[in-house]
Amino acid sequence: MKIVEFKDVTRTYVTGDHTQNALADVDLEIEGGKFVVILGPSGAGKSTFLNLLGGLDNPTSGTIIVDGTDISTLSSDELADYRAAKVGFVFQSYNLIPTLTVLENISLVEEIAPDHMKAEELLAEVGLADHSHQFPHELSGGEQQRVSICRALAKNPKILLCDEPTGALDSETGVVVLKLLLKMARDYGKTIIIVTHNQNIAKMADVVIHIRSGKVTSVDEQPHPLSAEEVDW
């Protein structure tokens, strides 16, 4: 079942006299429950794709349908509700609220997500139950990213959008985080879309989408993705 549909989507940035198409005429469909990796060099338009899908940005033209809803026509408040209910974000730089504890960072979504999950249970699953009352700065990078994953999942979204989730971590920690991300997503039946330029991560994906110069150059299905252990990091 299709969960994401991009129909002729273009995103243009205008800076002074200069116009740049970050995404141009993208047509794409993503099946639900899949682990999708979007690969491409810097400036290819990967993050723009993710931002449009996450409702952080609006397309210049075209239609984006997520779980049956055309998000390209939503108002600011409707987009906020969409983000609260349908998508979870995991950033390279974690973006935890420094003045809230680990538990509070996760449970704050309870105020906006109608179908949220229990923060304590999620924390226990990622092995951070003992750290629930610590502040983000008291955790390592890997631990912070695990909290970030918990926060994204706590909203119980259909899709997890991850922008270079291991980019700020050493490879060993990165693998741990990736494994966890995959496990959690699979356990809870989420669609994961990861944007990265790391070819190794792509080996674990069900679908790999290549983007270059704002265009989708290929969509490759991988019937037998490798597990994290099988990948040569």
Binding site: R83, A84, L96, I97, P98, E111, I112, K155
Partner: peptide, 16 residues
């Protein structure tokens, strides 16, 4: 600013 941007990404409305 950054914290508010995070809240916005999470789905908090502008008014909230």
């Amino acid at each position: 600013y950054r914290e508010m941007a995070t809240l916005k990404v999470l789905g908090f409305r502008n008014k909230a």
